[in-house]
Design a protein around this nucleic acid. Sequence first.
DNA 1: CTCTAACAGGACATATTTATCCTCTATTAC
DNA 2: GTAATAGAGGATAAATATGTCCTGTTAGAG
Lengths: 143, 143
Amino acid sequence: MLSQTTEYALRAVVHLAKNPEQPQTAIDIADATRVSPGYLSKVMQSLVRGKIVRSQRGLHGGFRLSRDPSEIPVLEVINCVGPIPRITRCPLGIPGHGEKLCSLHRRLDDAMLAIERSFGTTTLAELVEQSDDSFPLCEHIQP
Amino acid sequence: MLSQTTEYALRAVVHLAKNPEQPQTAIDIADATRVSPGYLSKVMQSLVRGKIVRSQRGLHGGFRLSRDPSEIPVLEVINCVGPIPRITRCPLGIPGHGEKLCSLHRRLDDAMLAIERSFGTTTLAELVEQSDDSFPLCEHIQP
DNA sequence: CTCTAACAGGACATATTTATCCTCTATTAC
DNA sequence: GTAATAGAGGATAAATATGTCCTGTTAGAG
């Protein structure tokens, strides 16, 4: 539903939000999120272009969030690597069919809209505040 | 978000729901839904295997819905060609992480669940009842 | 200045999705 | 039976998404 790339981007920013003290290198993030380092670099580049994270080259460089997690909606991260495809016109391309959607496509677009809204009102801060254990992204089972 | 294939499948079943009188050939459906005939055949095969439509070979054959549109939830069509991917376990594959999801993945799965529910309670009948014009899938603009 | 750490970006490889084409089989009409 | 219609299914191609690798550039430390 959401692409792998989107999933990776979200893991990465969550990791950054959980480790704001010092910049995290691509390797750091790749290890923590279990994403291949090479591909993660590409994803991080997208996030940099989207102004979600800032990069710093050289020794002690790495990536950090460009804003406070509470200022970053999850949707913004998603849009950065692969936006939710909204249906704004009839996808059949029939001449004479324009902005008015049939019930099928209106329904589908409603679902997309609901997702957009849900992710638009959730911030990164909300994703990190409740977990305090050592695992970066998933909680472990209580013994 | 939903795949092209899913979109095509939905268009096809909507067309069938709107034309219940006689079986629709793959060509009929392909024309009406603006999908390439070859690929549509594949999609229809999936729908047949999923018991959503029934096929009839030979002259005057074609496809028709296997049940009344009011008995077919949109979700069933979706699941037939490419289910909504639910997140049931930590996707990072870290040993010791099991069923309990971190907040990121719980959020993502919540969104998937919401979509499933939305499409699970909408039937094909609801998608066709309100449009009565000649256009098969999209309404045209009022002059 | 030189060495090393670390991101940027291009070229390439693989996998998956989408699309095309051709042959086979089933059904109907005659 | 023969001919025509129409779905089933396999092989193949094209497009896109995902993943790898290598070189270049920037920054910091000595």
